[in-house]
Every structure is written in structure tokens, then in C-alpha cells.
């Protein structure tokens, strides 16, 4: 018998709560934590210098930019979500601090003023609603105001998710480069730029900006090397186990049972683990309609994948359908090698 909407919602919530503590996520968390510590120390130094100087001009220590670049589904947003949640958990009850400010940039961001507006919106400052029509607008003044808010809310890092949206308009590269540079040069906060490889022109364009980069985190798709294959399959296997143990599905799926299954799964996700999760979530919605308990089978996954593919067919690599023509030979071979190596290791 099909689940009621409430039951479906409860299971979806459990699905969303699954957190696979994989090494890439750990690396991002560790890097952001290091950046936060470094930034806080610089901000403290800047603040004491500002107080010492009074109204005299001061050259502040610049802060940092940390790029996190990877394809959609590579886990950038998920990592940011986890980092922010972890920070909030650490704060005492009643505190209004925002140590890490997440800002999901809109594709309509054309100007510095719109960019600053989104930062103010993230702080829920009412001035965000009027800044676009301010007659005496000055970028520096708005940055000053943002700095005051940032210091008041103890923000040291701003995470600009979907940073590639800054370049949605062709002429924006230099403008947005300057806007981001101002944030770090004026000592407002360090910037974590999370986006797809479309954000690369922004990183490369501005020479001055380049000197402010920390070593970036490049979340490339997993290749058909034994290590990457092992990482990918471990993730899929762990995820399936979690689905069963949390009671989200009533029957195993068998994502990594056979070599064909593994190769199909890899080709479907094109080596991006986030795609596996997204397709499985769509398949789960179909699984809710089953009569004998919630179960996901390969047919559900294939249909869910095609549905997802239909909406995300913006890249040639993603138009390949392993459910129609079977997995690629190279993928299958890599899986066989990986299995043999695993057996040998045992």
C-alpha cells in the first residue's frame, strides 16, 4: 500500500539527513577551519590597528580567498551546509553571531551594488531593500557598513555559493573581481568562492586577486583509477546501507552488487558522487508508490536518471545513458580491475 504524504515526507527528511563523512568533505571542513582561524587573527590585528589610528588612514592586512571549484553535485554546497551548521552548533544559545556567512548568489547579479545587496540580505539588514536606489551610493561606504555588521556579528568568512553566477553576464569579470577584491582588501572577511569551473575566468582575470588566493580545493569528478573507483563505490555502498538502516527503503537496492551494476552507476553519475544521491532521491519518490513496502529497483533508477538528465542535459558528457546501451566498456574494465585488486588485497 502506498505511503501517505506525511510518511513520504518523513522518509525524505531522513534521506536528506544522511551525511557521508567522506575524505573530500573532511578536507573542505579542515581547510575552511584553517582559513577561519587565520582570518580571525588578522581581523583582530586590523581592529586594534584601526582603534590605535583613530580617524587616520590605515592600510589593513588583506584577507584571503579560498576557491572551491567542482561540477554540480560534487558536494560543494553540501560541504558548505555542513560547515555552517557545525559553526552554529558551536555557538552559545541566544548568540546572534554569524561566524561564517553563506550567500547563494543569484544569476541576476550584474553589479557591485547588487552583489553587496545580497550580502546585506544574508544579514537580513533592512537597508538591503533600498540600497539599489540610493542616490549617494558609494561602494566604499557600503563596504564600511558591511564591515561594521560583520564585526558586530563576528563574521570572518563569507561563502559565496554558486559563485559562477557572478559571471552570468559577459562583462562582469572585472567588475566582480574588483568587488571581491574590495571585500578582502578592506578587511571585511575572507571569501570562500564555491562554484563550477565557470568561475575560473574570475579567478584568473584579476592579477591582484590572484595574490590573495589560498590553495584551492578542486572537486574534480572521480576518474577510473583504482583509488577513485574504490572511493566512488565505497560512497555508494555506504549510502545504500544508510538508506536501509534509517528505514528509508524497506529492501536493498543492490547498487554495487555486480560489476555491471557498478559500471552502470559510475557511468550514470559520470564520476560525480552528488549525482548518485540526486538520482536516488528522485527514484525514492517512485519507490513510495510501490504496493509492498518502499523499494527502489534499477528500473526506478533508470527512469529517475532520465528525468534528471532531461533537465540537466547541458553538457555532452551527461547525455550518455548507460541504461539504454549498457555501461561503457572502459568503465566495465576498470571495475573488473578494481575488483581483482580488492580480491588480491584480501
Amino acid at each position: 500500500m502506498a505511503l501517505t504524504p506525511d510518511e513520504q515526507s518523513a522518509r525524505l527528511a531522513k534521506f536528506d539527513e544522511i551525511c557521508v563523512d567522506h575524505p573530500r568533505l573532511k578536507a573542505i571542513i579542515s581547510e575552511v577551519a584553517s582559513l577561519a582561524a587565520d582570518t580571525r587573527s588578522r581581523i583582530r590585528r586590523n581592529q586594534s590597528r584601526l582603534e590605535l589610528a583613530g580617524n587616520r588612514p590605515v592600510k589593513l592586512d588583506e584577507l584571503w580567498i579560498l576557491p572551491i571549484v567542482g561540477p554540480s553535485g560534487a558536494g560543494k554546497s553540501f560541504a558548505i551546509e555542513k560547515i555552517v551548521d557545525a559553526e552554529y552548533k558551536r555557538l552559545p544559545a541566544g548568540s546572534d553571531s554569524i561566524p561564517i556567512l553563506p550567500v547563494t548568489l543569484r544569476s541576476s547579479t550584474k553589479s557591485t551594488r547588487q552583489f553587496q545587496r545580497q550580502i546585506l540580505e544574508a544579514y537580513e539588514d533592512p537597508s538591503a531593500s533600498v540600497i539599489l536606489r540610493e542616490r549617494d551610493y558609494s561602494e566604499a561606504n557600503v563596504n564600511n557598513a558591511i564591515r561594521k555588521i560583520a564585526r558586530h556579528r563576528q563574521t570572518s568568512i563569507i561563502v559565496l555559493d554558486e559563485a559562477h553566477n557572478l559571471l552570468a553576464h559577459s562583462r562582469n569579470t572585472s567588475v566582480m573581481g574588483k568587488a571581491i577584491r574590495s571585500l578582502v582588501n578592506d578587511g571585511l572577511f575572507s571569501v570562500v568562492l564555491a562554484g563550477t569551473d565557470e568561475v575560473l575566468p574570475l579567478l584568473r582575470e584579476d592579477k591582484e586577486l590572484r595574490s590573495r588566493y589560498r590553495e584551492g580545493i578542486w572537486l574534480n569528478k572521480l576518474e577510473l583509477t583504482p583509488d577513485d573507483c574504490s572511493y566512488f563505490m565505497s560512497f555508494a555502498s555506504y549510502f545504500e546501507t544508510e538508506l536501509i538502516s534509517r528505514g528509508i527503503v524497506d529492501h536493498p537496492i543492490g547498487l554495487t552488487e555486480t560489476i555491471d551494476d557498478r559500471a552502470t552507476l559510475y557511468d550514470m553519475a559520470d564520476g560525480v558522487i552528488g549525482i548518485v544521491v540526486r538520482v536516488l532521491r528522485l527514484a525514492l519518490l517512485r519507490g513510495f508508490q510501490k504496493e509492498k513496502g518502499v523499494a527502489i529497483d534499477w528500473l526506478d533508477i533508470a527512469k529517475a536518471y532520465r528525468s534528471w538528465l532531461f533537465l540537466n542535459a547541458d553538457s555532452k558528457s551527461k547525455t550518455f545513458d548507460p541504461f539504454r546501451s549498457g555501461p561503457r566498456a572502459a568503465t566495465k574494465l576498470a571495475m573488473e580491475v578494481q575488483e581483482r585488486e580488492a580480491e588480491a588485497a584480501q
Binding site: 533592512p126 533600498v130 540610493e134 542616490r135 551610493y137
Partner: peptide, 14 residues
Amino acid sequence: AETPISRLATGLSL
């Protein structure tokens, strides 16, 4: 003065 708003009238309109 602590906000990005530079005009009194704009602030009051909020």
C-alpha cells in the same frame, strides 16, 4: 551612519 544608507529620508522610508 552605521548602515549603507546615506540619506535620512531613505532610512525613515524603511
